[in-house]
């Protein structure tokens, strides 16, 4: 696939001396949904802000659809729509006026038909003549998305699109994002809700302390880094782990009622059948068992804490 955004050696050091981004290299493929995950303050918003032209990079370069974002900023920016994290709206404008304004600002001739479509898609059509200040927080966020879509961008940045958003709007937003992708729009979203990345993203990038730790297809990432946990509900509680089980990573849980085994789901031999056989031989009976695949969240927490541990 062709890359639609290409980031090379991008760094940002703020005037205060804070190193927000260490050299970042990243290619976003055309038509994908890319989720940028990371804790607060990791540099997600800084990265987006540089690509969109709000923050000036210290070093490095970015191209959007082949256009350098500094030298050829007009062409680059016309392709990009941005929904920032904070709710910033013009209170006194009507919904219709503020969305129409955005389209003009991005250099597109008026198109009432397109504005109407965007407003209808976002369930804002009934509110088109309402002043933005009269709307609820969720509605204001829809207005910001409508503004970002007003000029038919090919690349859409959503910075924490569902932070502080109710469940209904979150579902709507996910639906909208998928629809946009089907229409060929490339979507880059930042989030610290892993659930969101897991639900929507094709690829995931994890950023921590200004460094991209991992960029991977979501499914591959989960497979590669995913661990499985086997939990056995024992027939009789154990006070301590008996000898002869050293070959497996085992832990007693629930006051000896549960035996937990964490293993690498990708390993050729997981050792589970052997473990069960050994338990049988030792006379340790069990009533039930379940296995659980680790979620993206577990992976993420693991990665970030590993980094922190490594850096300390």
């Amino acid at each position: 696939m062709a890359s639609v955004i290409s980031i090379v050696g991008l760094t940002k050091t703020y005037a205060s001396g804070v190193e927000a981004l260490r050299p970042i290299d990243l290619d976003i493929e055309k038509g994908e949904i890319f989720a940028l995950l990371g804790p607060n303050g990791a540099g997600k918003t800084t990265l987006i802000s540089i690509v969109c032209g709000i923050v000036t990079a210290t070093t490095g370069s970015v191209t959007a659809d082949g256009h350098d974002i500094v030298r050829d900023y007009r062409a680059a920016r016309m392709k990009i729509g941005l929904v920032p994290q904070e709710l910033h709206t013009d209170s006194f404008e009507t919904v219709w006026a503020t969305v129409t304004f955005s389209r003009g600002l991005f250099g597109k001739p008026p198109s009432p038909g397109h504005i109407e479509k965007v407003l209808r898609d976002l369930s804002l059509w009934d509110k088109r003549d309402a002043k933005v200040q009269e709307l609820s927080g969720g509605m204001k966020r829809r207005v910001m998305i409508a503004k970002a879509l007003s000029h038919e961008p090919e690349i859409l940045f959503l910075d924490e699109p569902t932070a502080g958003v109710d469940v209904e709007l979150r579902r709507d937003m996910w639906g909208l994002v998928r629809e946009l992708r089907e229409g060929g729009v490339t979507i880059i979203l930042t989030t610290h809700y892993i659930e969101e990345a897991e639900e929507m993203a094709d690829r995931v990038g994890v950023i921590s302390k200004g460094e991209l730790i991992v960029v991977e297809e979501k499914n591959a990432l989960m497979k590669k880094l995913g661990r499985k946990t086997l939990t056995l509900n024992l027939a009789e509680p154990l006070a301590a782990l008996p000898g002869g089980l050293d070959a497996w990573a085992l832990e007693l849980k629930a006051e000896g009622h549960e035996l937990e085994h964490v293993f690498d789901a990708q390993a050729e031999a997981t050792g589970v059948p052997a473990l069960l056989a050994r338990l049988g031989a030792l006379g340790i009976g069990w009533k039930d068992l379940n296995t659980r695949q680790s979620s993206l969240e577990d992976i993420f927490v693991g990665l970030v804490s590993e980094r922190r541990g490594g850096a300390a």
């Binding site: 900023y73 016309m78 941005l82 904070e86 955005s102 250099g107």
Partner: peptide, 14 residues
């Protein structure tokens, strides 16, 4: 003051 400047800064306006 209102934060809406983000739009102007990210727009293809010289």
């Amino acid at each position: 003051w209102a934060g809406t400047i983000y739009e102007l800064l990210s727009a293809p306006v010289s």
